[in-house]
């Protein structure tokens, strides 16, 4: 058991090759190579393109992280890597590469859960968790509400999207409005110039929905409603107020996300809400969550935008936590598990 374990973390579950290095809760390096530009023309991540890019980027990104942190591989206490969930071929590059590193250095390796890593990364910014927390994880690949009692033991899923992920809705609406991929940043920017003048539907919020889907999300209907609204304007030959549509759409997403997250905190009697994932970089979501949480005496923990999106630091942060907690390392034969269960922190 180590107080402040020095851990290198590797993340390759989607289109970012991330390598982070942490000492305890201190971030030493967070190197990133992204293949997002190669995917932009397809309007979404192409798995094989992502996997090829990871293979090329992994070693240079590892070396950059080591340089930035000013540490040597020999100094590490452990290596951590995202074992799942994510794109199977993309995950495998990181997992096999991390195992190679572990073999060469004879260091222990921890295969960890990507979603739990999104929660753990906040410890780098706001220190260790002091009690139970509710985590809202929102990105292009996931939209989940979890209860976190002990990050080294496991998390309890409370709800998730039943169709599109929140970030996916951003991507699709951005495309509809002629904005580039990924859609989160351009919508955030446009929304700041507009006003939420259109009341778009809030998925799974009717009294009936709340009975069976209290902590679940649905963004597919919202995306369709925005498409219909825009098409109707275009049919009339009237201009589409892009900034107002972006603001209205963003308002609807953030409204549902924060409403359900606060409800989950109150339901569980938990005082802390952690927000992570790429959509947590959205300025309106951050502001609305703070505002609503404050009314109920709930503390919001959300790391700076760069730590919200996929990165290696979050994997290193979770790895460091597991080493400090005395968790046993993974065996060398653990698989890259594209559908890894949320209740597993590591493999």
């Amino acid at each position: 058991m180590r107080d402040e374990p020095l851990v290198l973390g590797i993340e390759t579950s989607c289109d970012e090759t991330g390598v982070g290095i942490v000492r305890g809760h201190t971030l030493l390096a967070d190197a990133l190579a992204s293949s997002v530009d190669e995917h932009a023309r397809f309007g979404g991540v192409v798995p094989e393109v992502a996997s090829r890019a990871h293979l090329e980027a992994l070693v240079p990104t590892i070396n950059r992280a080591l340089d930035d942190a000013g540490v040597k591989l020999a100094d590490l206490d452990a290596i951590a890597v995202t074992a799942g969930p994510g794109l199977a071929g993309a995950l495998l590059v990181g997992v096999a590469g991390a195992k190679g590193l572990a073999l060469a250095t004879e260091k222990p390796i921890f295969g960890v859960n990507h979603l739990a890593a999104h929660v753990a990364v906040d410890t780098l910014e706001h220190g260790p968790f002091t009690g139970p927390a509710i985590a809202l994880l929102v990105s292009g690949g996931h939209s989940s509400l979890l209860r976190v009692d002990d990050l080294s033991a496991g998390v309890t899923p409370m709800g998730a999207t039943i169709d599109d992920a929140a970030g996916e809705a951003f991507d699709k609406v951005a495309r509809l409005l002629g904005m580039p991929f990924p859609g989160g940043p351009p919508i955030d920017r446009a929304a700041r110039e507009g006003e939420a003048t259109v009341s778009f539907p809030r998925g799974l919020t009717t009294a009936r929905d709340l009975q069976s889907h209290r902590f679940d999300f649905s963004f597919s209907g919202l995306k369709t409603a925005v498409a219909r609204w825009v098409e109707a304007r275009e049919r009339d030959g009237s201009p589409v107020p892009v900034n107002d549509v972006a603001a209205s759409f963003q308002e609807a997403v953030c409204d549902v996300l924060t409403m359900k997250a606060i409800d989950a905190c109150r339901h569980a009697g938990v005082q802390t809400l952690v927000i992570g994932g790429g959509v947590a970089a959205n300025s309106r979501l951050r502001a609305m969550a703070q505002e609503r949480a404050a009314k109920h005496g709930i503390t919001v923990r959300v790391p700076r935008p760069k730590l919200c999106t996929d990165n290696g630091a979050m994997v290193a942060a979770l790895g460091s936590h597991l080493v400090a907690a005395g968790r046993r390392p993974s065996k060398l034969d653990f698989p890259a598990d594209s559908a890894m269960s949320l209740s597993l922190i590591g493999v």
């Binding site: 579950s13 989607c14 397809f42 309007g43 979404g44 991540v45 192409v46 798995p47 799942g84 969930p85 994510g86 794109l87 993309a90 859960n113 990507h114 979603l115 292009g140 690949g141 996931h142 939209s143 989940s144 899923p157 998730a160 999207t161 599109d164 992920a165 970030g167 996916e168 991507d171 699709k172 991929f181 990924p182 598990d337 594209s338 559908a339 890894m340 269960s341 949320l342």
Partner: peptide, 13 residues
């Protein structure tokens, strides 16, 4: 044009 859905699987639910 694939959807950006790397982890919509059992692991998410």
């Amino acid at each position: 044009p694939a959807t950006r859905k790397p982890a919509l699987a059992a692991g998410e639910r």
